[in-house]
């Protein structure tokens, strides 16, 4: 079993565009201080940022849980919200239900979930319509995933 070194949990609030992305920035600073490889940091932070933005844009509220072990980093973003009816479609590059307002802010290119998947060594997306969505991502520290 990998040894757990650090675990943190953050609350995510919907529609708070001003604060959206703050947690990812905080995680970046924390990983830098821990001396984690910069490539690994970048992947982790892209995963966190995209997932954070999705909760802010589409869900009601959520939690980001971050666990560092001696082998990898595990990120879980779980939200209460509308959920996703067709998970495979949501994972397609370019598919988006973003509003015009979100598009004007630079989002809604349908690339967030594909970015999360691409940066993960292991990835899972589960969703239940009317209940919520959970994204889990694992990124290995040795970059050999």
């Amino acid at each position: 079993m990998p040894e757990e070194l650090l675990s943190r949990s953050f609350d995510l609030h919907s529609h708070d565009f001003d604060k959206a992305g703050e947690i990812s920035t905080e995680i970046k600073g924390m990983l830098k201080e821990l001396g984690i490889d910069s490539q690994v940091i970048r992947r982790v932070v892209v995963v966190c940022f995209e997932a954070e933005m999705n909760v802010v844009m589409y869900a009601d509220e959520g939690t980001l849980t971050f666990v560092l072990t001696d082998e990898d980093i595990n990120i879980e973003i779980a939200d209460c919200g509308p959920g996703i009816a067709d998970v495979d479609q949501a994972l397609e590059e370019g598919w988006s239900t973003a509003t015009d307002e979100m598009r004007e802010m630079g989002f809604g290119f349908g690339m967030g979930l594909p970015n999360i998947r691409r940066n993960s060594d292991s990835f899972d997306l589960r969703s239940k319509v009317g209940v919520g969505t959970t994204v889990t991502s694992t990124i290995r520290l040795d970059g050999l995933g």
């Binding site: 565009f17 959206a20 995209e50 802010m105 290119f109």
Partner: peptide, 22 residues
């Protein structure tokens, strides 16, 4: 923004027309 994050090269110069906090 997600398009910018789709690329993997660090230390690139970023050009954008969006000036919000994001």
């Amino acid at each position: 923004m997600s398009e910018i994050l789709a690329f993997h090269r660090p230390h690139a110069l970023m050009l954008t027309g969006l000036t919000n906090i994001q």
